[in-house]
Structure formats: structure tokens, C-alpha cells
Simulated assay, not measured.
Amino acid sequence: MLNRFKGVIPPMLTAFDETGNLDIKRTKNIAKFLKDKVDALFICGTYGSGPLMNQEEKERVIEEVSQEVNGKIPIIVMVGSASTKETVEIAKYAEKMGAAAVASVCPYYYAHSEENILGFFSELVGAVDIPVYVYNNPKTVGYPVTPKLLRKLYEIGVKGLKDSSFSSITFYEFIRELGKEDFDFIIGTEALVLDAFALGSKAVISGVANALPEPVVDLTKACQMNNLNEAARLQTLVLELRELLHISSAISVAHAILQIRGIDSGYPRKPFKPLSNEKMNELKTRLSALKLPL
């Protein structure tokens, strides 16, 4: 197992203004808040509203976040779309802007054959010199990456996996298939950090870490030090925070927590909406009860 990336990697939010336009200043506010607290950033993904942005907007986010981070931590760019052409063009731009890697979901919306999927990733791998990761997100794509498909993706040059199957069994099956190869496994949820690290993974892409990175960082450190009692305690806390993030749209809640923490993170893009007053009050009450040092 390669473990190219280690530690906590937030799938960073993208900020929009009240009318729905891309807000670069506020997006950079989020990057500035995170860059000293985490180990890498994953941008233009699900939390980053990638599917809600056009190519020009994604490229602007890539450019501006890269400038804000300025090489302090690596950036992984989620470049996947329904179109091979657009995916490849964004990947090339990400490489030009200094991205450490790109990741892509399988082409979505259509029920593609294995041949089409392999062709999609073959073109992507051939277009850039930086590592390409496959992002397994069956809930949003419509179909899963299987261990056998992952093996074939590895054989055409894919270098790693972000797994958002939300299943320890599935993650284990991926590692059983390719764990002895020069391949990187990243768990795509903070809910399974303890399980994933026990299996040899060293990195987590965590939605909670967008707004509350500190407990997730503490959890990964406890896992790395093999402090199982502390890791179990922190995993329970992180699960509570994950539950809190889902009192409404997780994107909207993450924006709200950042605002509570004094970070002007703008607005989610419609059809997502800011939290209602009722939900904001619930969020504040529950956060206060957890007594986190914010």
C-alpha cells in the first residue's frame, strides 16, 4: 500500500454569494482557515459543489485556492463529470496549477459499460503526469466501482482510490484486491477512520473537517499512535459531529458552523439553502452541549 496522502483532507466547500455567483474571496477565506489545520485539500468535489459549477468556475476555484494555499499543503482536485472531454480539460488545468493529484468519479448519469469506464479513465490517465485517483461514490454516480473493476483501473494506470461506499466490508475488499500493490487507499468518510486505519489506510477525506477539523485530526493522530482507547473515544465524538452535520443539508450545516466560528464562508449554491433560524438555533445548542474548543 502506497499511502501517498496521509492525515485529514477536507472536501473543501466552495463559497457563493447570496445571488448564487461564485464568491472567490469567501472561498479563499475557507482555504485560509483550513490550510494550517489539515494535511491536504480535496476541492471541487461533492461538498465543493463541483457538480453545480461549470468548467470555467471550477478552473477559477482551482487557480485561486492554489494561490491561497501556495504549496503549504497538497491539493487534490475532483475533475470528474459526465463528459470525458471536460474531465480531461479540467485535469490538465489542475496539473498546470500545481495540483498533487486529480480524482474522478466514474462518468455519471448514464449506465456505462465497463469498456466505457475504462476508456474514460485511460484518457484521463494519459492526459496528465500527476496521479489519478478513482472516486467510488455509488450513491451519486448510480453504480459502484467493484474490486475487479478497481484491478483493471490499476492496470491502466490509476494510482489510488477515494472510497465513499460507506462500508468497511467494501473498503476491505478493495484492499484485499490491491493492498499489496503500489496503490493508495483513502477512506471517504470520517465515520470509518478507525476501521480504515486498522486496515492500513493513512488518510481520510472528511466532510466534518470542513468546519470542525480539530477532532478529526486528533482521531487520526490517535490511530497513527495506536492509542486504541483514545481513538475509540474520538471516533465516537466524530460520529456525533457527523450526525450534527446532517440535521439539514451537510453543505449548509458546514457553512453555518464556519460562520459560528467567525469564518465568512458565504452561501451554498441553490438548490441548497442556508439554515433556517430554527435549524441554526438547534445547531448552536447542540454544538454548545459538546463543549468543543471552537
Rank of each mutant, 00 (worst) to 15 (best):
Ile76Gly: 06
His112Phe: 11
Ser49Thr: 11
Gly48Trp: 06
Lys28Cys: 13
Ser83Pro: 01
Lys37Glu: 02
Ala99Leu: 04
Ser81Tyr: 03
Ile75Cys: 11
Gly48Thr: 11
Ile117Ala: 08
Ala100Lys: 06
Glu86Trp: 00
Ser104Glu: 11
Met53Tyr: 10
Ile75Asn: 12
Ile75Lys: 13
Cys44Asp: 05
Asn54Pro: 07
Glu86Gly: 03
Asp39Phe: 00
Asn21Arg: 14
Asp23His: 15
Ala100Gln: 05
Ser113Phe: 09
Lys92Asp: 10
Ile43Asn: 04
Tyr133Glu: 11
Pro138Leu: 14
Ala127Gln: 12
Leu124Cys: 10
Ala100Trp: 04
Leu34Pro: 09
Ala91Leu: 07
Met78Arg: 06
Ser113Lys: 09
Tyr133Cys: 12
Glu56Ala: 15
Thr87His: 03
Ser83Thr: 10
Glu68Pro: 08
Ala103Trp: 08
Ile75Glu: 12
Lys96Thr: 09
Val105Lys: 03
Pro138Ala: 12
Cys106Glu: 14
Thr27Arg: 02
Tyr93Pro: 10
Arg26His: 04
Lys72Leu: 15
Ala127Glu: 09
Ser113Asp: 13
Gly71Asp: 14
Ile76His: 12
Asn116Gln: 14
Ala99Lys: 11
Cys44Trp: 06
Asp23Ile: 11
Lys28Pro: 01
Gly45Lys: 13
Lys35Asn: 02
Ala111Cys: 08
Phe120Ser: 04
Cys106Asn: 03
Cys44Arg: 02
Ser113Glu: 12
Ala103Ile: 04
Lys35Met: 15
Gly50Leu: 13
Gly126Met: 08
Lys37Phe: 01
Gly48Phe: 08
Ser66Gln: 03
Met78Pro: 00
Gly45Leu: 10
Tyr47Asp: 05
Phe121Gly: 05
Gly71Glu: 09
Asp39Ser: 13
Thr84Glu: 12
Gly98Met: 05
Lys92Asn: 08
Asn21Val: 00
Gly119Ser: 12
Lys85Phe: 09
Ala94Lys: 13
Val125Asp: 05
Cys44Glu: 04
Lys85Ala: 11
Gly98Cys: 04
Asn136Glu: 05
Val102Asn: 11
Asp129Leu: 09
Ser81Trp: 05
Ile73Ser: 06
Gly98Ser: 07
Asn54Met: 11
Ala101Asp: 05
Ile30Lys: 01
Val61Gly: 09
Arg26Ala: 02
Val77Thr: 12
Gly80Val: 02
Asn29Trp: 01
Tyr133His: 07
Val79Leu: 08
Ala99His: 13
